[in-house]
């Protein structure tokens, strides 16, 4: 299994570094043709308006929609990536509409309002995945992640519900517009990591912390 990292603009280097550490095969995606070589995709943080501008001439938006909707392949969007995947954006802008949520751009304010906080994991899926042997096996076969990786980082207690969240000029999920959307992580009781079928989105940046649980979860989708 190969994870694609959309590399038009944004923190794609931080994402690929993380995948490298996890010994997960990955490749950068610069044009629609590149999508044929990957099984899932990460849309990184960045500036969503710049990303839209870069996608337009090569019809990348259409290709991503096909990848996520028709091919049903997993897509993980962080920050700007979440904005691009959401159905409704405040203020209004174009998007893929692959997950039924409403997102407000820069809702936490400017850079001076960027912050690091401790969030809560509210779904069992992200916790202690060692108890699901079938997952571990799939994992070993398909993405080269094994329990060694999970226990590699002694700083993170894999069973704690606490999770470090980095917010940088972050967007906010204003509403969840379908009962098919599941909440996985919250901060101050607000949804921060949510999933609808094959689409996973985060308003924070797991690629900038040492906690790999969100990655491991995504690689097993």
């Amino acid at each position: 299994m190969v994870v694609g990292v959309l590399a038009l603009q944004g923190d794609f280097a931080a994402h690929s570094k993380k995948l490298q550490e996890l010994e997960q095969p990955w490749r950068l995606i610069k044009q629609p043709d590149d999508l044929g070589a990957v099984d899932s995709l990460i849309i990184p943080g960045g500036e969503s308006s710049a990303l839209l501008k870069l996608m337009a001439p090569m019809k990348m938006l259409e290709a991503l929609e096909y990848f996520g909707r028709s091919s049903d392949k997993p897509i993980f969007g962080t920050c700007a990536g979440m904005i691009l995947l959401a159905k409704n954006i405040i203020p209004q802008q174009k998007s893929l509409g692959l997950i039924d949520i409403t997102v407000e751009r820069n809702a936490y304010g400017r850079q001076l309002d960027s912050f690091i906080a401790s969030g809560q994991i509210v779904s069992e899926k992200l916790l202690n995945r060692d108890v699901f042997p079938e997952n571990t096996i799939t994992c070993k076969q398909n993405c080269y992640i094994n329990q060694h990786t999970i226990s590699k980082n002694p700083n993170i207690n894999q069973n704690t519900r606490e999770i470090e969240l980095v917010f940088i000029r972050a967007p906010k999920i204003r509403s969840i517009d379908s009962k098919d959307v599941e909440i996985l992580v919250t901060f101050q009781d607000q949804p921060m990591l949510v999933q609808q079928k094959n689409i996973l989105v985060a308003s924070f940046h797991p690629e900038l912390t040492e906690d790999n649980r969100v990655y491991e979860y995504f690689c097993n989708l």
Partner: peptide, 11 residues
């Protein structure tokens, strides 16, 4: 947090 914003500007 400071270099984090610079990461977002890459490319």
């Amino acid at each position: 947090l400071k270099t984090g914003l610079a990461e977002m500007l890459k490319g």
